[in-house]
Design a protein around this nucleic acid. Structure first.
Lengths: 330, 330
DNA sequence: CTGTTAGCGCGTTCAA
DNA sequence: TTGAACGCGCTAACAG
């Protein structure tokens, strides 16, 4: 691969001049500029990004750390990040933490080593990784899940009140024993959704039935097991609020095996508006989250912080929308 | 951020010695080594990946270029790539071509600029980007879709024969007018699946009904429109082979709007074993692809080529599996 | 407006 | 075994 000095000598100028032409900095005699451009084109010159970044002391990659690329919520978010990043000439390194604080820490390490310009983080709760980010003063934004401690750019969804609204909806539909299959304790969105569920029951002067609440990973398998425990007994809940659509899949599997039909036998509402939810029978009531916008806004926030590290921290809260469907009609 | 010379002076040695210790190269007096390790730990030293890569003339990132992160087939594949890459200390840059040859070319450009160690490419058909990769002699492997020209490491699925098997299954179930909603013409997997469909009809001495074939993007919306065209007339097909599950969603939407039930009214089989396909009524017949393995094997192949660029090119073909379910029972 | 010089942070010579 | 010197490819500062 040719380097800039090769281009320069072919064009009969100094490397510095070639650099100036190729970067559009300062002004160069039109004739020389043309010779440089021609030489670069002929040789298929491609600047060495590493050398450039080393010298400029800045890169154009941002790291995105999420819990699970196979969860449509996160891929949609990732897409938003990508769109915003590429629009500004940045590349994205995608890292899968598997909701494991140790892996998360490792990826933050990689991001720091590679001198990423910034990080978009949906944290699994590793206070250590957040400490590293803060120590190194590398721009980062918390997305989907807030982080503890000092003020930080944050983009989240009003997931707690959305969970309350969904629970209220179940109450209004006449369900009496409403259970909840929550995400892993300690993860903000999981805790918030559970809290919202409790808020609504409390507001309606209902008992908050600890026996109707289960925690599980944000995966289908765990939710399936939890649902089976909850549903396979006489005193079963007559409705369930589920922390996301991946988990709802597991719940639906359990219900099918137990011969239970959603809506009629068990009211069902879950977070995330997976496109498949309208194709099942009955269609599933969901709490739609603006995942793509979440990624988009988080990334714009990050880019603006990269541009101005001194700017005060911002939190923006997007709204989730309850979409009632057949799974909550008796 | 501290640099290696900072660590060295704190440990009272030269930068060269510090480098030797930190990289485990050559042998250093145990006492000095310990001092260096201690200093590095205290200062939270993190080698500058850019400088290191520049000096070593090699990076540890690989680029993954796919058509659509929001397609579960690709995310599963991406997961396989990630798993294999991280196991070997490589990072992955994920690039979304949107099945657009121009975007694909741009990402190849980025990969070259950043001096990626290699590329895993599911090509949208940009001959230009493949030419660039070949010209620069950068290791790359074609995944899911073969590329034209010189021998290239390739990992694919026997999608053509799988499509034929699925079509044969539809014939055996007694469907008479079998249509096909294919992917975009020019994309290998789309063309192959359509070819397999034709193979099976030809082998059964059936007419190959051009009027029952439609092309669409690998998206729900396009497939929905195509399905509506096909199904909303008297002489409609009584079964459909669909190029993937994302498209099948569109087909199911169209059928719901037309009041058609899969299985009874229209037999339905689609590529990819999306977990939702067992939750709809009736469950959908699918052709399951080993997407995760595809990514895994492709990446291992890539890493082995990075290690030995002279090795002869390999093609491995994985098998897809027909899973008959209710959507192909009358 | 252009060229020369210097150095980003590292790993690897080559001598001692 | 250790350290000094050099250069990976680039761009910013300084001179001319």
């Amino acid at each position: 691969m040719p380097k800039i000095s090769d281009v320069a000598s072919r064009a009969g100028v100094s490397p510095a001049t070639a650099s100036r032409v190729l970067n559009g900095k300062s002004t160069v005699a039109p004739e020389l500029a043309e010779r440089v451009q021609a030489a670069a084109a002929e040789m298929q010159y491609r600047p060495n990004g590493l050398a450039r970044s080393l010298r400029r002391r800045e890169t154009t990659v941002i790291a995105l750390i999420i819990g699970d690329v196979e969860n449509p919520f996160f891929t949609s978010l990732a897409r938003g990040v990508e769109d915003a990043a590429h629009a500004d000439g940045y590349s994205v390194i995608l890292c899968n933490s598997d909701e494991d604080p140790v892996k998360e820490r490792r990826y933050v390490d990689v991001a720091l080593q590679e001198r990423a310009a910034g990080v978009v983080l949906s944290s699994a709760g590793s206070t250590e990784s957040i400490g590293m980010l803060r120590d190194q003063r590398i721009p980062f934004v918390a997305v989907d899940r807030p982080v503890e401690g000092a003020a930080t750019d944050t983009v989240v969804v009003d997931t707690r009140s959305a969970a309350a609204a969904a629970t209220l909806h179940l109450l209004e539909q006449g369900y009496q024993r409403i259970g909840c299959i929550a995400g892993p304790a300690g993860i903000a969105t999981a805790d918030d959704r559970l809290a919202g569920y409790r808020d609504a029951l409390r507001a309606a002067n209902r008992r908050i039935p600890a026996r109707l609440v289960r925690h599980a990973e944000f995966k289908a398998a765990g939710a399936k097991a939890a649902a089976r425990q909850l549903l396979d007994r006489r005193e079963r809940p007559d409705a369930l609020l589920v922390a996301n659509c991946v988990m709802a899949r597991g719940v639906l599997e359990a219900m099918a095996e137990l011969g239970l039909r959603s809506g009629r036998d068990v009211g069902l509402a879950a977070f995330d508006d997976d496109p498949w939810t309208t194709l099942i029978t009955p269609p599933m009531t969901v709490i739609a989250q603006p995942a793509h916008d979440l990624g988009l806004i988080a990334t714009r926030l990050l880019l603006s912080r990269i541009a101005d590290p001194a700017r005060a921290a911002t939190t923006s809260t997007l709204h989730a929308t309850l979409i009632p469907r057949g799974s909550t009609e008796r």
